[in-house]
Amino acid sequence: MDLKSLKTFHRIVALGSFNRAAEELNYAQSTVTMQIQKLEAELGITLIERGRTFQLTEAGRLFHEQSTGIVKEMERLQGRMSDWMLGETGELRLGAVEPLASAMLPRLLQEFLTAYPKIGIAVEIGSTPLLGERLLRGELDLAVCSRPVIGEGLYFEPLFSEELIFLLPEGHPLSVLERIAFRDLRDHRILLTAKNCPYRHKVEMLVGEACGSPLNSMEISSMAAMKHYAACGLGLALVPHSLLDPLPAGTLVREVKDARISVTFGLLCRASDVPLKLALGRLNDFLKERLRQDAVPAPMI
Rank of each mutant, 00 (worst) to 15 (best):
R11I: 15
V13Y: 06
N19Q: 06
A21P: 08
A22D: 08
L25C: 03
E40S: 03
E40M: 02
G44A: 07
I48F: 02
R50M: 08
T53F: 09
T57R: 04
H64M: 10
E65S: 14
Q66C: 10
E75K: 04
M81S: 03
W84H: 08
G87Q: 10
E88I: 01
E91R: 04
E91Y: 01
E98F: 07
P99N: 03
P99F: 03
L100D: 11
S102W: 11
M104F: 02
M104T: 15
R107P: 04
G120V: 00
A122K: 14
E124S: 06
E124G: 00
T128Q: 07
G132P: 03
R137A: 05
R137D: 06
E157S: 11
E162C: 02
E163P: 02
F166L: 08
L167N: 01
G171M: 10
G171Y: 12
H172Q: 06
D184V: 04
D187V: 00
I190V: 12
L191D: 12
T193K: 09
A194K: 13
C197S: 11
R200S: 00
E204F: 05
A210E: 10
P214W: 02
S217Q: 01
M218T: 00
M218V: 00
S221K: 09
S221P: 13
M223I: 14
A224V: 13
L234W: 15
L236W: 03
A237N: 10
L238D: 05
S242W: 06
L243E: 02
D245A: 12
L247K: 12
P248G: 03
I261N: 03
S262L: 05
T264F: 07
L267D: 07
P275G: 03
E289D: 10
R290V: 14
A298R: 09
M300R: 15
